[in-house]
């Protein structure tokens, strides 16, 4: 898919940081406000798909390969399952929230929407699932756009 006109490229370049920042905010505040890893990852992947449509798949594949996205997605999955197994090791059972209650990272018990250092292992699981969803959804769209050729019709 070749790129679109200069107006579309400029507008998407201006809009892309705001979309990405909003998606990362949704991921990071997943235990306080509505949203979470899946929703924020979907927002960030939507911004990346906008860049893909504006600049073309060949340019985007020159920036990031699908091997790197595959590695990122595997890191997210390993982090998620590893946190679940750490609950089995340090706590009592699988998916035990082992960080809450002690004075370590994210250890406090929240009473109110302003304290981000709460909820134990939930923010870390949000980060892992967010990384996994970003890499997975954007990788699917990127591979499909790069490997299929335009056949008939007027679309580039």
């Amino acid at each position: 898919m070749s790129g679109m006109s200069k107006i579309v490229k400029t507008i998407s370049s201006i809009t892309f940081p705001f979309v990405t920042i909003y998606g990362l905010y949704v991921i990071a505040h997943g235990h306080l406000t509505p949203g979470g890893g899946f929703q924020g990852g979907a927002v960030v992947a939507s911004g990346c798909a906008m860049i893909l449509v504006a600049y073309g798949s060949v340019w985007t594949m020159g920036k990031i390969k699908e091997k790197h996205l595959s590695v990122l997605e595997s890191f997210g999955a390993i982090g998620f399952i590893g946190l679940a197994f750490l609950g089995l090791i340090f706590g009592t059972m699988f998916f035990k929230n082992f960080l809450v209650g002690n004075d370590f990272l994210f250890g406090e018990i929240g009473k109110g929407l302003s304290n981000i250092s709460t909820a134990g292992a939930l923010p870390l699981m949000n980060f892992a699932v967010g990384l996994k969803v970003i890499a997975g959804l954007f990788g699917i769209v990127l591979v499909m756009a790069y490997t299929t050729k335009a056949k008939g019709g007027k679309i580039e």
Binding site: A77, G110, A119, G120, L122
Partner: peptide, 30 residues
């Protein structure tokens, strides 16, 4: 769980196996 968002605490803590299955589905699709 210490989280103010009840939906996230259900999705990631009380019903964590659902999220594990969803992650498996996404991995398989990719």
């Amino acid at each position: 769980t210490g989280a103010d968002n009840g939906v996230t605490s259900v999705v990631f803590d009380y019903r964590g196996f659902d999220t594990l299955g969803e992650a498996t589905v996404l991995f398989t699709a990719f």
